[in-house]
Design a protein around this nucleic acid. Structure first.
Ligand SMILES: [Mn+2]
Ligand SMILES: [Mn+2]
Ligand SMILES: [Zn+2]
Ligand SMILES: [Zn+2]
Lengths: 132, 132
DNA sequence: ACACCTTTTTAGAATCATTATAAAGTAAAT
DNA sequence: ATTTACTTTATAATGATTCTAAAAAGGTGT
């Protein structure tokens, strides 16, 4: 019930599937990073009914477009998403292939001195790769 | 002839294909960004003989492993590589889907204050997304 | 409730970048 | 020259993602 308004306000119909995906994604103490496959597993575990993979893809992309999820730029065969939509950065542990949040406050202010004509900055993201 | 030593020193046999790919990649005034497909096109245009796609993949990965190429972390269905292996950053023009180098000197020094136990920092990369 | 229209879900097929396979070719070592 | 290890290649396989089109569900007005 708590996500019905959120979806309506975004012009998305609050379907049973979308509401359930909202619960899996946003009813958590901690934000988290996931691939579509991670999410599909989580949904299968946490819910009694199944949701088709196509719907999971559709929903994740819809939520991303609306700004409820962010994509994390990283080199992987799978796309990583983040339920933490605040401005922040990431560690990427190359050995464990795991993402770790790096808060804005843990990185000095980033000053982009160069401008590109006619373009404005949409985001500034730092990726710190870690190894043992 | 100029890449034979480079390859030998890396433990890579200087085959005809690898030497030709070296020429396409490194015999340029400017460094550049590319996908495997870009590179395959370039090879077809610049060379008289053809090189199989499998070899292009193999070679690019071998060169990356040896540090002659870098992968650029970005969300795309294709993997982007960079012949500029210096420490540097990138603009990504979302509208034109184009990468632009952003020199280290164009970004203030980045100070990662948080440490992860037992891990050391391998790289720090900034991605600045641009829109119109 | 019902009719009507739009959006959404779904199974399954298609796409396409990338990786795997295994046989033939080449470079290096003995 | 023979042997050995590495490399190239055509081709198949893989797997994440997107597409398709038909069925289901939501929303609106009556
Ligand atoms: Mn991707
Ligand atoms: Mn990729
Ligand atoms: Zn995050
Ligand atoms: Zn670059």
């Amino acid at each position: 019930m708590k996500y019905i308004e959120k979806l309506r306000n975004s012009g998305l119909r609050p379907t049973k599937q979308r509401l359930q995906i909202c619960e899996v994604l946003f009813d958590t103490k901690q934000t988290f990073h996931f691939t579509i496959n991670d999410l599909a597993k989580k949904i299968k575990d946490q819910l009694d009914n199944r949701i088709s993979l196509a719907t999971i893809y559709n929903t994740v992309h819809a939520f991303e477009k609306k700004g409820y999820l962010k994509q994390i730029p990283i080199n992987s065969n799978q796309t990583y998403f983040d339920t933490n939509i605040s401005d922040h950065h990431h560690f990427y542990d190359l050995n464990e292939e795991k993402l770790i949040d790096l808060e804005n406050s843990d990185v000095g202010p980033i000053n982009i001195k160069r401008k590109i004509n006619g373009k404005k900055i949409k985001s500034v993201e730092v990726l710190v790769k870690l190894e043992d």
